[in-house]
């Protein structure tokens, strides 16, 4: 390995991320431009490029904070979480964590939740492909298969629990309508994110659906899901409700495989 080259690259890196001037000693100045100005072209590009990446992944957050505050947030995030992966696809993945743990943003907890929502869309956009199961696939099942039936979900399917009504803010941003004030959600909402036919989608889950879907995503079988529904439904209504939820999941394109335990 070339030690002198590594030292040069380290010095250049330190200039870009921390403003250390040592690299300028190795760089030619010209009449039109001193070395420090030349080096600053790279530094400026670094910070502005990464803020732009964040703005692409978090457009609603940028819209709500405004460009100046978003840039301040972006710069703080870049300093805290420098990019370590070749692809910019993953650069913004820790922004929700950063917002939830750093002042002044920590004091506005809905910002972290909005960031989590926008990152969920990014994940759904980029998730792997999988064939989905249709209603006719499930009609082919024998009656005795039903109690042990479990489901594999499309790789894009994910749920988020939200304590603030950020979906309303996100929607308002998308529709360019006035933003509603951040309000607490009581009870908390569970929002489902997925991709179907190449379009990323979301849906606020009904109160009884959220725990059932989460259990199903963890591999619980149909009998177990029905028991869970019995907590919130009369016994005679359970089967109907379970069938209606399953139908919805299939129509939404959430399920990519049916697993029977025989």
């Amino acid at each position: 390995m070339d030690k002198a080259l590594q030292a040069l690259q380290t010095a250049f890196y330190r200039q870009i991320v921390a403003g250390e001037a040592e690299i300028c000693n190795q760089i030619e100045s010209s009449a039109a431009m001193p070395a420090s100005e030349r080096v600053s072209i790279y530094a400026n590009a670094y910070w502005s490029r990464l803020v732009e990446v964040l703005a692409t992944d978090y457009p609603a957050l940028q819209g709500i904070l405004g460009e100046e505050d978003f840039t301040e947030l972006g710069n703080a995030y870049i300093a805290a979480y420098p990019s370590t992966y070749f692809s910019l696809r993953w650069f913004g993945r820790s922004l929700a964590t950063f917002l939830a743990t750093q002042q002044p943003w920590q004091a506005q907890p809905w910002l972290a939740e909005l960031a989590a929502v926008e990152w969920a869309f990014v994940d759904a956009f980029n998730a792997a492909e999988a064939e989905i199961v249709t209603a006719s696939d499930i009609q082919a099942l024998a009656p005795q298969d039903w109690p042990g039936l479990s489901f594999r979900f499309h790789p894009s399917v994910a749920c988020l629990d939200l304590h603030w009504c950020v979906m309303a803010q996100w929607q308002a941003y998308r529709e360019s309508t006035p933003l509603p004030a951040a309000e607490a959600c009581e009870p908390p909402q569970t929002v489902l994110f997925w991709r179907h036919q190449r379009v990323t989608r979301y849906r606020v889950l009904e109160v009884d659906e959220a725990p059932v879907l989460r259990q199903a995503m963890e591999g619980a079988n149909f009998a177990t899901l029905c028991e869970l529904l019995a907590d919130s439904h009369a016994v005679e209504a359970v089967a109907l409700r379970a069938a209606s939820l399953l139908k919805r999941w299939l129509t939404d394109g959430l399920v990519c495989r049916l697993l029977t335990d025989v």
Partner: peptide
Amino acid sequence: TGVHGYNLHDLMPLP
């Protein structure tokens, strides 16, 4: 494009 595991996401010149 980077050093010590950090990526600058830029095309940095060589000596």
